[in-house]
Structure formats: C-alpha cells, structure tokens
Nucleic acid binder design. Structure first.
Lengths: 257, 257
DNA sequence: CGACTCATTGAGTGGTCTCAAAGGTGGTGG
DNA sequence: CCACCACCTTTGAGACCACTCAATGAGTCG
C-alpha cells in the first residue's frame, strides 16, 4: 500500500536544451499563444532543465524547494502518505503541468512527487516569481489559472473517491487520464498506453490492490481496456465514459508557463 | 444523500456596509497586514456586500458568475453532485476564504456553494481582476497563494477519504474544522460549535448517513465531541487529533483579499 | 539461478451499505 | 391551539462490497 521503493534520486542536469521559442508544447492548439514579450520573459525565467528517471522522487513532502517546474515531457504523480505507509495518489502530472507551486508560494511542500516515466522538467527560480507577477501580470494570472485548474481536478477526484462505486471510479480514472493525454497528442496515431501499475490505480482510487485487480478485470472483460505489464491500454474510450457516467465538456485552451 | 432542499435563493443586498479599513477580519493576527495602497485598492475593488441565509445556494454548478467573493462572516460549503443525487462535499468556507475563483478565472463553475449559516460576503467584480493583477502584483500573488492553500486542503481531504478509516476520517474532519475556526476566533471563550448536520459529515467523508451516525457516536462515547441538534460541539481537541493521527503544523499568517 | 516486482485468483472476514422503524424537534396551516 | 409534516438523529437487522491473508505464475534484473 505504501510506496514500495524510493530507490533513486533525481539527477540534476542544469543544461539548457530546448529554448522556449521552440518549445514543442507551444505548437499544440491546446495551449494559448504567448505574446513575444511574454515568451521572452519566460525564456529567461527558465533556468535550465532537469531530467528525472522513472521511479525517482522529484519532490519530497516537507521540503522547501527553491524551484518551480513545468513538465516538458513524461509522466509523474503527486501523492501523500500516512505514517504507517498508506498512500493516496492525488493527481497525475503530464506535459505542461506546473509542479511545486505549493512549495513556491506557501513555502513548504505537503506532498511528494514521483516520476512514472523518464521526465524532463523546465526549472524556474522561485525567487523570481515576484518579478513575474510584477512585470507580466498576464503570466501571474496564468499561474492562478493553473492553480484553479488543479483545484478543479482535485474536486473531481474527490467526488470519485467519495461517491462513485469502485467500477465507476476505475472507468472514470482511465477516461480522465485519456482525456488529458489525448489533447497533448500522447496517443499518437495508435491507442493511448498509460504507464502505471495496478498499485498506482489502487492508491488513486482508495481501494486495495486485490480489489483493484478484480475491478480492472471487469473493464478488461468488457473490452474497454487491456492491461499490459506496467501499463494500461485504452481500447474503448466511449465505453469507458459511459461506464463512468462521464458528463464533462472537453477542456478548452489553457496557459503554459 | 443528495441535497434534500434547495429552497431559498440568495438575497442580493448590494449596499456597502463595512469599509475595508475597518474590516474586523484584518484585526486578527492570522491575516497578513496590508499596505495602505493595497488596502485602498481592495476597498474600491469591493463593490458591496451580499447576505445569504442559511441553506441558500450561493453559487451553482454550471453558472458563469460575474463576481468573486470573500466570506466576511458565516459558514458555507462547496460540493459537487452526480446525476443520481449522490453528493460530495469538497470543503468548507469560513471567514476570509475566497469563493468563486474557479468561475472567475477559468470561466465556468463546476461546483456549487451552499450557506450553512447566515453568510455575509464581500463582492468583487470579476472584470476588474485583470486590473488587480496589473496594478498590485502582490495582491495577484495573494490570490495564487489562496488557491494553493485550497489545493492543499483538498489534498488532505482526499487523503482522508481515500486512505483513512471511518473513525479516523470523522476525527480528522472535526479537528480540521476546529483548527481553521479557532485561528479566526470563532470559538470565542467557550467551546467551538460547528453548524453542520450528520448528513453534511457523511457527504464530506464519503460515508452513508447511518454509518456516519455510528461513527460519530464512538467519538461522543469517548468524550471527544457532543452532538447537538444541527451542530457539533468540540469537547477535546487533543483527543480528536490523537484519534485522527494528526501531524500538521498550525497554519501561519495568510493573505486576505 | 535467486530475488524481486507485478499481476492474478481463491477463501474467509469485516467494514460499510441499504432497508426499516422510531422518537424528537420545529414549522405550518387548519 | 393543535394536528400534521419535514427534517434530524438514533438503532437494529441483514446483505454486500471491499478488505486481508495466502498462494501462484510470469517477467526482469543482477
């Protein structure tokens, strides 16, 4: 139930590789276009990049991180644990998502973040956040926008864990991740494959690993998903949405810091 | 399980009563002091006050509210519902808390808010939010700060619902609300009384009303709380924290818009 | 090859659910 | 003023969902 391993530590790689002007994420229609001055500011706000390997802990509960990050590529998840090891996954992080905002704004992180796949992060200096708000109010507003979006996702997850049945929860989770990944073009031409284990699903849904397995098997039996070694392949997104009682409209254009 | 009633509608009372310079909340050590210019701006940013009676729905899911609010006095709660009426309470709103930020920033509200007691709100124009970010970056940062704080509370609630036992959940909820209320001086000289029904507790914890009643009875039997007609009296906060496995540090100074 | 993680399945337990019924309170209308 | 109704709280009984314990096989890595 708890995090079984905490084996490796993040490898700092402060070399700047991709300039913001040629950021591949900005080409996606999902992100709002920036003005030239905004782009210039973000470009020099970015201090470098950081690469984390799969399974490494990027941020730890209790830490006072001096940085704010944006996921450039890869998958990660936020989680909290109780003292006896029970773990709750709070949300997943995909390209374009901010990481470490709580720590940057309030001071101390009260959750941890672990990489699900190799992750590349854009690193920003926390100390220059004031400057961002002062010189580019639109970017400050964007950060608030992203914080409100995270709150909205948490609302939905809380509704799931609190009030949906195990079957609905599982279907909803897969449909939700699919929704987020597909607007980023992560499914490519083929079907989306989500790099998580059943333990992750269990810790997200608030279920035991055994019951999660039996619930996922129902989804498999209905042909909605196929489970691979450490991954979930989405076969029938419409079927999943129907099983989940999905009602949400697709997300429109959003900011990217 | 669903919201039984939606009887009354908010009474608009756009009369300005309390000037921000004499806001009673600002006297509390819990809120960070404002500079004169910030206070002047907020004071003219505030459009008026709104009074909602207990049980009235202040904001509805799907609405495009043109306003942002701060709770001046009273209790309320945020919630979402599924189509068949299952309800999940997401968080509670106490004096000083922002209301309607998701709607103001992203556009559409995806949750509702209902008053638990008579509530007085400070009303702000959504249209002037850009102006706030542009002319007072510190206030823009404060709004982000409050959004990050809300996210943090949701993280904790999600951990509760997903991974704590029913008994721990109930104890944690009461201890959590007590923590928030006490820094606002809401308990006065006597013990804190929280104006909620057992149905609210059930919908917060993701439990049925029957099981919630039996769980709360255990807390009562141990002398930790006393249940009144529509209220919960906190008798032994240390006992509650012990039962909940409470580990959190007290919240420091925070902003107030 | 052994150690480990992940996925799977069966069996039995127990936490939580639904159904049902009761008393208390407050509000409302006859 | 009283009868009635709606809501809240409480309790019991039985059903069921999800849990723990246990064991197995497949795959990976050193």
């Amino acid at each position: 139930m708890g995090p079984i391993r905490a084996e490796s530590v993040t490898l700092p790689t402060p070399t700047r590789r991709i300039p913001c002007e040629r950021c591949p994420l900005r080409l996606l229609p999902h992100f709002r276009p920036f003005t030239k001055t905004e782009l210039d500011f973000v470009s020099q706000f970015k201090r470098g990049e950081l690469v984390a390997e799969a399974g490494s802990i990027i941020l730890s509960e209790g830490a006072h991180s001096a940085h704010l990050y944006t996921v450039l590529s890869g998958w990660a998840f936020r989680y909290k644990t109780l003292e006896d090891g029970r773990r709750q996954i709070l949300n997943y992080l995909l390209p374009g998502d901010l990481m470490g905002l709580q720590g940057s704004v309030i001071g101390e992180m009260q959750h941890s973040i672990e990489a699900l796949s190799p992750v590349v992060l854009c690193v920003f200096e926390r100390d220059r956040l004031d400057e961002l708000f002062a010189s580019h109010p639109g970017l400050g507003f964007d950060i608030t926008w992203l914080a409100a979006r995270e709150e909205r996702m948490l609302d939905e997850n809380l509704l799931s864990v609190g009030r949906r049945t195990a079957f609905e929860r599982a279907a909803y989770l897969v449909a939700f991740i699919h929704q987020r990944a597909s607007v980023l073009g992560l499914s490519g031409n083929s079907r989306l494959v989500i790099p998580i284990t059943q333990q992750h699903v269990a810790d997200t849904l608030g279920l035991s690993i055994v019951h999660t397995n039996k619930t996922l098997k129902k989804l498999s039996d209905r042909g909605l998903i196929r489970w691979h070694d450490r991954a979930c392949e989405v076969l029938d997104i419409e079927g999943l949405r129907a099983a989940a009682g999905w009602t949400e409209p697709p997300e429109g254009v959003r900011p990217l810091i």
